[in-house]
Design a protein around this nucleic acid. Structure first.
Length: 488
RNA sequence: GGCCCUAUCGUCUAGUCAGGCCUAGGACACCAGGUUUUCAUCCUGGCGACGGGGGUUCGAAUCCCCCUAGGGUCACCA
């Protein structure tokens, strides 16, 4: 049994952020690639902002990405509970122990005094920090005041000196203790704060490696000091580069979607989402852009992670999504795209099932033309329009009108078409049509451009005879007749 | 502002730890050409970077220092 243990500890206070997804992926891959354990813990210490819906969304989102956990909500484990709010009894005992040992102390300063203190410091352009008024209160008096019912918080007593640690992605990092405030571990209402519980719980759950976003780097010395006060082994840390928006600031809704759900809704394939996230701060070999999760797990190492922030590139993400779609099997793609067709009101789920071969033909023609599942419905909309009211794109119509004899050509072609029995076979019909065009002494565009306009209203798109096959003789004929009149 | 982190094409990155194999490689985007009935795919080619300055060295994208720039963080949020 390996004692390698990693975790992801999301706070259920909103949507499932892509940054959380990437951090989870990196932790999970490291554990899975080395036979370690992966733990999920819900960090719901902020009782006012945490919601059950958010927690459910996080579990669902992580599972959707293919991330599984050996211990955590819904699966249990020997170090539970895995929801921080259910662990407060242990947390309070630990605080008591630290106060008695002198590593922490009660602070009776009022919120007002602290606010005043901070404002004064800010006005004088000093670094805001606690002035240590309660730091050296006599322990007996402190205990007496607490017993008398006076309200207090508990602060960590940061000692003199400096903390140096070896970050797995950044190397040696040093913080002078003079820069670290005597931070609050226990709030006035008796609830513990993040920096305190995260250490308690990581200790209880025997977490050996902590990979998290760079925004946590400055918390690390506070936490290391706490591990030491507790007499516990300090885990290895690895601080991942931030995912940046196009404004080069921490990825936020300002510059684009940040929630996993947004991308799922638009129809980014799961494999593309995972693949893209892996590429934010890590590269397989610098050459290979596309790889599967198994390869990622096998090849990922925290020491190879980039130190600089990664700007999120929507263009590359879309490209990767399109590339993933192009590599999908037709049946899978049809399944993936079906809900979007239903959503758009083009077909019902039953209708799709009943006309599966037709639907797959419809999908096949778009496979190399869409980048997202959500791109599909608008691109095939013409196949669901009334035969006499197909929407003509201006460019398609202009292309059609370039040909003087369009009406006669279309008319003649329709006559020829009605005598054929290979409308279901685009290759055969296409070849025969080209011969027909030649016999008539026409140029290919003289028939193809008006025909495409009349059939689909689009200036470009899938093979024309694939359109005929999709439409069938009846609709094809109706569209040609209506089109002849409309292009007159 | 203090502290911390970072710095290779517009973007994601390989190369940096073990200095010469780098006239710096790949991908996205962009541009041009080819294939195709059109669009898209696909193929070929092009554009395009070691932030600046000092060192160390026979030799530096790679090591050291300074500067500059960007980011993170300074809550009884996480």
């Amino acid at each position: 049994m390996s004692d390698l243990r990693l975790r992801i500890a999301p706070s259920p206070t909103g949507s499932v952020h892509l940054g959380l997804c990437r951090t989870a992926l990196f932790n999970w891959a490291y554990a899975r690639g080395r036979g370690g354990a992966f733990v999920l813990r819900i960090e719901d210490t902020d009782r006012t902002r945490s919601t059950a819906e958010s927690e459910a969304a996080i579990l669902e989102g992580l599972r959707w990405l293919g991330i599984d956990w050996d211990e955590g909500p819904e699966v249990g484990g020997p170090h539970g509970p895995y929801r921080q709010s259910e662990r407060v009894v242990g947390h309070k005992e630990t605080v008591q122990r630290l106060v008695e040992a002198g590593y922490a102390y009660r602070c009776f300063c009022s919120a007002e005094r602290l606010t005043e203190l901070r404002e004064g410091q800010e006005k004088r352009k000093e670094t805001p920090r606690y002035d240590g008024r309660c730091r050296d209160l006599d322990p007996a008096e402190s205990a007496r005041r607490a017993a008398a019912g006076e309200e207090f918080t508990v602060r960590f007593r940061v000692p003199e000196g400096a903390t140096v640690f070896e970050d797995l992605v950044r190397g040696s990092v040093r913080f002078d203790h003079g820069e670290i405030d005597d931070w609050i571990m226990l709030r006035r209402d008796g609830s513990p704060t993040y920096n305190f519980v995260v250490v308690c719980d990581d200790v209880d759950m025997r977490i050996s490696h902590v990979f998290r976003g760079e925004e946590h780097l400055v918390n690390t010395p506070k936490q290391i000091l706490l591990y030491e006060a507790l007499g516990e082994t300090v885990p290895r840390f690895g601080h991942l580069p931030l995912m940046l928006g196009t404004d080069r600031k921490k990825l936020s809704k300002r510059t684009g979607d940040t929630a996993l759900g947004d991308y799922v809704a638009k129809g980014y394939p799961r494999d593309a989402i995972i693949n893209f996230l892996c590429l934010q701060g890590w590269a397989l070999d610098g050459e290979t852009e596309v790889f599967d999760t198994a390869t990622f797990v096998e090849r990922f190492d925290i020491v190879d992670v980039q130190k600089a922030g990664a700007v999120f590139d929507p263009d590359k993400f879309r490209w990767l999504a399109g590339d993933t779609i192009r590599r999908m099997g037709l049946a899978d793609l049809a399944d993936a795209v079906a809900p979007y067709v239903v959503e758009a009101g083009q077909m019902s789920a039953e209708g799709i099932a009943a006309r599966r071969p037709w639907f797959e033909r419809l999908v096949a023609g778009e496979q190399e033309r869409i980048e997202l599942f959500g791109d599909f419905p608008p691109r095939v909309a013409c196949f669901f329009e009334a035969d006499d009211a197909v929407t003509f794109d201006p460019k398609a119509e202009k292309n059609a009108r370039k040909h003087e004899a369009r009406a006669e050509t279309l008319q003649a072609y329709l006559g020829w078409l009605e005598g054929r029995d290979d409308l279901d076979d685009p290759a055969s019909l296409g070849a025969a049509t080209k011969e027909w065009v030649q016999e008539k002494g026409l140029k290919i565009p003289a028939l193809f451009q008006p025909l495409r306009c009349v059939l689909t209203g689009q200036p470009g798109g899938r093979d024309l005879f694939d359109c005929v096959a999709l439409l069938g003789l009846e609709a094809t004929a109706a569209r040609i007749r209506a089109g002849v009149a409309r292009l007159a």
